[in-house]
Design a protein around this nucleic acid. Sequence first.
DNA 1: CGATTCTTTGAAAACAGTCAATCTGTGTGG
DNA 2: CCACACAGATTGACTGTTTTCAAAGAATCG
Lengths: 194, 194
Amino acid sequence: MSEFDPLRAYLQRRAPFTAKELDALEEFFVPATRRPGEFLQRAGEPVRYAAFVAKGCLRSYVVDAKGQEVILEFAPDDWWLGDRTFLTGGTTCECFIDAIVDSELLLFDQASHQRMVACIPTFAAMFRIAFQKYAAEKDRRIINALSMSVEERYLEFLQRYPGIAQRVPQRMLASYLGVTPETLSRVRRHLSQK
Amino acid sequence: MSEFDPLRAYLQRRAPFTAKELDALEEFFVPATRRPGEFLQRAGEPVRYAAFVAKGCLRSYVVDAKGQEVILEFAPDDWWLGDRTFLTGGTTCECFIDAIVDSELLLFDQASHQRMVACIPTFAAMFRIAFQKYAAEKDRRIINALSMSVEERYLEFLQRYPGIAQRVPQRMLASYLGVTPETLSRVRRHLSQK
DNA sequence: CGATTCTTTGAAAACAGTCAATCTGTGTGG
DNA sequence: CCACACAGATTGACTGTTTTCAAAGAATCG
């Protein structure tokens, strides 16, 4: 039983990694934990690590011109999360990332990521697919924000990320959906009356 | 005076390409034109070309569950545009791309793109930077859609893409901003009264 | 010119935000 | 163990914004 088990299980589910490859990959990751509210990084800091979330839930957010937090992403078990500039070699973080619940992470830096991609083709292929899904998610979120009602966005969220709504405070979900906590509360009441 | 001049000028502005590199790059592109309303591609078709817009303006859009067009992007002079799956090796188009005004394009396929990136490092570097900006744009658009008012989004659009508002019909701009044409019209009136 | 499409305007209804008060659950210190 | 404080969630009343539907004006194209 090691901190790396969730990562190994995740990788094996996605692609036929050999035991040797899994061992090699493990070398690139550093276990870490965060308690609720503890940061993985803050906007303005140098880019250091991205994380594989072995257990728990993180969030990334930015602070807009009016001082309001806007949540970009939740990252529960088996998700990758880093500053949005991480993959493209950014040097300064543009967003805040902190834990919502007690979380176990596996950290890796930009150099490690590049070596993993360069040395282990299976990993490169798997990561490319993950990145495609990630990019598609962004487009979908834009489309949803622009064309769906709050109620529709909420239901879609529940369906697409089952389990997340249970572990994040409702006000964060409201932030993710782009509405006030009051509005989300009313939407939920309206749905429960059906 | 050739169809390639706008592309050459664009490239030279971004990075110190040699004349030889520019000549080599030219080989990968095929000139084409589109009149208003003509498609570069439709959702469901196989992915064929992406385009450099030498002159004119294209748009990409999807049709949502209610049958409504949602505009993902405008591409005026000096922009790149392709299906969102183009760069990641997608095989089937997920969006529609058509011309808004008479447009002159330089088309290239996925194989050409890969060869350009592989053979001409200056191009690879330039393209990576362009792609970074593109990804940042998406995040910004999500944040804007979720945290700004229609008026703010409209003003931001005017500022960020000067010139586009003049050449696209207002209802398309409304679609891009995620509001009805009536609302955009009223926002404009309100602004002009100041 | 006539037809079509785009834009503007108006009025009513639906929707979401704000502010303030209450309710609920959690955890802390007495 | 209880009382209390605190943060989050809910509710109500009110305000402001956006949509919807319908109609009238522009602009464009054949």
